[in-house]
Simulated scan of single mutants.
Amino acid sequence: MPRADFYLISKPRFREEPLRLVCELARKACDTGQPMLVLARDTGQAEALDDLLWAFDENAYVPHQIAGMEEDEEEAAVLIVPPDVDAASRPLVLNLRDEVAPGSYERVLEVVPADPSAREPLRARWREYLSRGFELNKHDM
């Protein structure tokens, strides 16, 4: 059964820099040997995440790159995909876009903003994943 995990931002360090949570989740996937796609909302977010993955933890290295930039992207543990760029599907997807993640995957991670007024699109995605038969989980971060 496919699974959707919703990560609700609550800790101050993630409120101030939500992409830091994305980096933590990417590192966790990398540490467990799970290649991950990160579906960025736009090119600016993809570039910001690329920069932050280099710098967020001096003791961690998360092999990553932005899709469409180089030929060997299937070797990157974390592939950051801007809109309008095609990338091969992977079993684990972290979705930062406003719609349900497209394609086929075993597990999708959704980051829920700290601001309650920004959560409605996530509630709609929760219902959509539920209707598609996903097992749903919520985590307070």
Rank of each mutant, 00 (worst) to 15 (best):
P2Y: 02
L37D: 05
G44D: 15
P18G: 05
Y61I: 15
I66E: 03
A4C: 09
A26S: 12
T43R: 10
I66Y: 02
F56A: 13
K28D: 11
Q34S: 12
A55V: 11
P35L: 12
L8P: 01
A60G: 09
A60C: 15
A55T: 14
T43K: 12
A4W: 03
E16N: 10
A40I: 06
L8S: 13
N59P: 00
R41L: 15
A46N: 05
L49F: 07
A4Q: 02
E71P: 01
P2M: 11
R27Q: 14
Y61M: 15
A60N: 05
Y61C: 14
S10R: 11
P63T: 06
M36C: 09
M36I: 03
S10A: 12
L19P: 01
A40F: 04
E17T: 13
E17V: 08
Q45T: 10
E73N: 04
D42K: 03
H64F: 02
L21H: 00
M69G: 07
R15V: 09
V62Q: 01
D51C: 03
V22A: 15
A60K: 13
Q65G: 15
G44I: 01
I66P: 01
R13A: 15
A4G: 09
F14Q: 01
G33Y: 03
P35C: 07
E75S: 13
N59F: 11
V62L: 06
Q65R: 13
R3Y: 09
D31W: 03
C23P: 01
E70T: 04
Y7V: 02
Q34P: 03
E58R: 13
E24W: 04
D51E: 15
F6P: 00
A40T: 07
D42L: 04
E70Y: 04
R3I: 09
T43F: 10
